[in-house]
């Protein structure tokens, strides 16, 4: 007498074979979709600034007085490096920046360090302790970083003589990458 009822309720207790297969298929699909999600790197989109004109900035110097403006550096190859004193990888990449700067400081290449989301005192302390004589400036409440689409420091941008961003490096940079980036831009006719 109860048999048909059991059959009917089985649809909900998931004991039927089709129901089992269905549940397993859905779960596998779910996992696949989640795993595919890893392909999405939210950082990808930010490379969209490459090939565009670099956002203009005029920022106060970290040490001393005066400002540095991007438009005054037209005609030179500019490397813009966003850093912060609280940022661990910035510390790691710093020696590479020092070496690259020693190599190019007398040429037509300018390195500009932009202090990102940090207090001026901490930034000054960072530069004094680690060395580095390239111009460093303080971002105006993160506005320049926003224009460049900075995800988080350190980030390095390569800007050509025409003011167009030609390359971008997210994360700590090494000397090789710096030299390669700079040389590509130097060879490029403007």
């Amino acid at each position: 007498m109860t048999t048909p009822n059991v059959a009917a309720s089985r649809r909900f207790t998931l004991t039927g074979r089709t129901a089992n297969l269905l549940v397993i298929a859905v779960l596998v699909g779910l996992i696949v979709v989640l795993a595919l999600g890893f392909r999405r790197d939210p950082r990808d989109i930010r490379t969209a600034v490459v090939g565009k004109e670099a956002p203009a900035f005029r920022l106060e110097r970290l040490e001393g007085t005066g400002t540095v403006a991007l438009e005054e550096l037209r005609g030179k190859v500019v490397v813009v490096n966003f850093f912060a004193s609280w940022c661990v990888p910035c510390r790691e990449e710093h020696p590479a920046l020092v070496r690259a700067w020693e190599r190019y400081r007398t040429s037509d290449v300018v390195l500009v360090g932009i202090l990102f989301q940090d207090s001026v005192e901490s930034g000054r302390d960072f530069v004094r302790r680690l060395g580095g004589t390239w111009p460093t400036v303080v971002d105006d409440r993160g506005r320049t970083a926003l224009g460049f689409g900075v995800f988080g420091p350190p980030e390095t941008f390569f800007i050509g003589r025409d003011g167009v961003i030609e390359g971008r490096h997210i994360g700590p940079i090494d000397e090789d990458t710096l030299v390669r980036g700079i040389e590509t831009l130097r060879r490029k006719p403007s």
Binding site: S85, W86, V88, R91, E92
Partner: peptide, 10 residues
């Protein structure tokens, strides 16, 4: 560990 000790945190 932080590879260096910053003056102040974020």
């Amino acid at each position: 560990a932080s590879p260096f000790v910053p003056e102040n945190g974020r």
